[in-house]
Amino acid sequence: MLFITAVLLTGILLVVPPYLNENRTTSVVVYVRNSASNACAYLNTGVVVNGSEYTPLNKIIEADNYTYGGFQVAGISSTESAGGITVNVRIAYTSSGLPKESLQGNITAFIKNDLVSKTNIKVNNGKLYLNGKELEINVSVVRR
């Protein structure tokens, strides 16, 4: 009886950590995806909402004259290494006359703030951490 319990517990010890790990990576991708698509939806409405969390995006809307910018999440990918998780987000847009660098920076800032305020991701020295693992978010924008 004891032996069987021991076998079961060992099995559980073997199964649970990889499961949780997989769960975490999936969650992170889902969180980032949600934040990115929220950012796109917000930018497309062209309505400025006064709230500190929207400040980076409001700059883009004002630069775009409150019009529809055709923002869309074009793709998301993640790579996992010993150091942490890297999530790459690609965002496509159609509006002209928007400087790419500030777009990238502002959307990244929004996604980071959103993740920190809505999930259990912590920020330390400007870097994101999830349960001690470093999380890197790269946003690239392409004009179609």
Partner: peptide, 21 residues
């Protein structure tokens, strides 16, 4: 449940914003 919950607050703001637009 966690993900759904965090989505809701965004959806509410988005709803009003769209109506105003």
């Amino acid at each position: 449940v966690y993900i759904a919950n965090s989505e809701r607050s965004h959806a509410e703001t988005f709803d009003t914003a769209t109506k105003l637009k």
